[in-house]
Amino acid sequence: MDLFVNAIVAGILLGAFYAAVSVGLAITFGQLDIVNIAHPAFVIVGSYIAWILNSRLGWDPVLVGILAAPAFFLVGALIYRIYYAAFERTGQESLSGLAFFFGVMFIIEVVLILVYGVDYRLVSASYLGKNIDLGFVGLPLRLVVPFVVASAMTAAVWLFLSRTFTGRAILAVAQDRLALQLMGADPVRIKQFAFGLAIATTSVAGSLLIMIGPVEPSLGRVYIGRAFAIVVLGGMGSIPGMVIAALLIGVVESFVSSFAGPSWAPAVAFGALLITLAVRPSGLFGRA
């Protein structure tokens, strides 16, 4: 029974973090129709920046994640510019664009290996080793802090998308470009902003990832499955649907690794993705 409760709690904490990893992809893949398969690779870059500044200067990883976000935003905007000029304008975005991001992901991974090697990296902070003990279940702070930060970020992105003019323009650009132009907004600039925002969230998500556990360059591949499974399950671009899907994947993965062994955990997300794509591509909450 204790194991059962612990698995659920760990799954929920982990699920909220998965939502933070996927929220950027929900914008790029779900709203903008840009299959950014390199999204998890940017998360790993975020982890490495947190590790560098934490181990050299002793900065708090969450702080680093937030401070680095503007730089990530600029990188994202630049990548969208290249993507737009090379693929979107010529109308061959889907497959060439996919291969393009596949190459970007590969380059990021190899550069990290070349510069920092394949060792596992960790961050240290005074609170990371501590536990909140609730009697029947122990909450390690290295999961609770990411849970809180991840929930705050996901909520902030959701509020931004649903309440501000720019946010609503991002939701609109996927549906009707022309109507957006008539409202006095430039679709290319809106998409560039949205893509930058999505990449900026990976900075924070990366700093959370390295708090939860050690990180090495190829870890991003596992998150491709998780992030895409969550976005597709959540109904492509709906933030609340994405959060529910993230919690679901987190809990199921946590159960599988507690009861069947951790080596089976990666198959959960990819299996879910494969089944969803084959059986119900509109996701759990989409209209079929």
Partner: peptide, 20 residues
């Protein structure tokens, strides 16, 4: 059932499931 990018993502997922 799967066209374009969805097919590509499904093949990637298949690779990881088989590796597991």
């Amino acid at each position: 059932r799967l066209k374009g990018v969805y097919f590509a993502i499904a093949t990637l997922a298949m690779a990881i499931v088989l590796e597991t």
